[in-house]
């Protein structure tokens, strides 16, 4: 290494030490991060988000019993992503769409061959043949249970894209139907916008939760959140599969 590298490493270590000091518990500056085992979740996120309440009208919420809390999903991260900040999520999906479109514009020639010249071995082919439906099912499970367990649209879509990547790795002649992918992607995006517009029509603001919330913790609960998550899953899965197909067939 040259002198410049040592100097930058030294500067990084000093900066890390300063940041560690600033967030350490010894100096009381309001920024303290507790140690691993001692964290109370209500100090980690805003307490109003956890209690499903931004209007200071909170009541006690009991899993599987309470009816119609403010945004009725059991997983509060989902409430933030698909309810309080749904417009943000729409923007993120648009960013992903623009990235996929740019990649397809540069590399999208569907007549080229696979990057790997031969098939994988027999064992890998049979293993992928068994695993592909299981992984697809896992992705659908993660998408549908997004408002009950960790995970959701983005994660499930990525699992589905990984299953398709495994198909590409095992069989050199595997090709995706890009027209179908485009139709799925456009359908999901337009449906997301239409749901937002229905909320604007019924309740007066874009992307409002206009369905009944139901009992917290059951599968059919949380109003419009599962529908939005299913649409996000379809869109992300189609986009990531298109990106992988464009990269490997070039």
């Amino acid at each position: 290494m040259r002198f410049r590298d040592y100097l930058s490493l030294f500067l990084v270590i000093i900066l890390g030490f300063i940041i560690f000091q600033a967030f350490d518990g010894t100096i009381d500056n309001g920024l303290n991060i507790k140690q691993f085992g001692e964290v109370n979740l209500s100090e980690r996120t805003s307490i109003h988000y956890i209690n499903k309440d931004v209007n200071n009208e909170s009541t006690q919420i009991i899993y599987n019993e309470s009816k119609n809390p403010e945004s009725g999903s059991a997983n509060y991260v989902t409430s933030i992503i698909a309810n309080y900040r749904a417009l943000d999520t729409l923007g993120e999906i648009t960013v992903l769409f623009i990235a996929a479109a740019g990649l397809a514009f540069v590399l999208g020639d569907h007549n080229k061959n696979n990057a790997f010249a031969s098939d994988a071995s027999f064992i890998v082919k049979i293993g992928v043949k068994i695993l592909f439906p299981l992984l697809f099912l896992l992705g659908i499970y993660i998408i549908i249970h997004g408002h009950l367990t960790p995970g959701g649209g983005f994660q499930g879509g990525a699992v589905i894209a990984t299953a398709i990547l495994l198909k590409f790795l095992a069989y050199k002649d595997y090709k995706l139907n890009h027209t179908g992918l485009t139709i799925l992607e456009s359908f999901a995006g337009i449906s997301f916008l239409i749901i937002g517009l229905i909320g604007l029509y019924t309740d007066g603001s874009f992307l409002t939760n206009f369905l009944a919330n139901g009992t917290i913790g059951t599968l059919f609960s949380a109003g419009v959140i599962p529908i939005i998550y299913i649409l996000i899953g379809i869109k992300v899965g189609a986009e990531l599969s298109g990106i992988i197909s464009n990269l490997i067939n070039a």
């Binding site: 994660q155 990525a158 699992v159 990984t162 992988i244």
Partner: peptide, 25 residues
């Protein structure tokens, strides 16, 4: 371990399969 299961799941999926394969391509 820090009890952020959603981020952990995203990191596992994206980091395990997709990023590595994109770099390899």
């Amino acid at each position: 371990i820090l009890k952020a299961p959603d981020v952990a799941m995203t990191e596992a999926i994206i980091g395990a399969g997709l990023t590595t394969s994109i770099f390899i391509f």
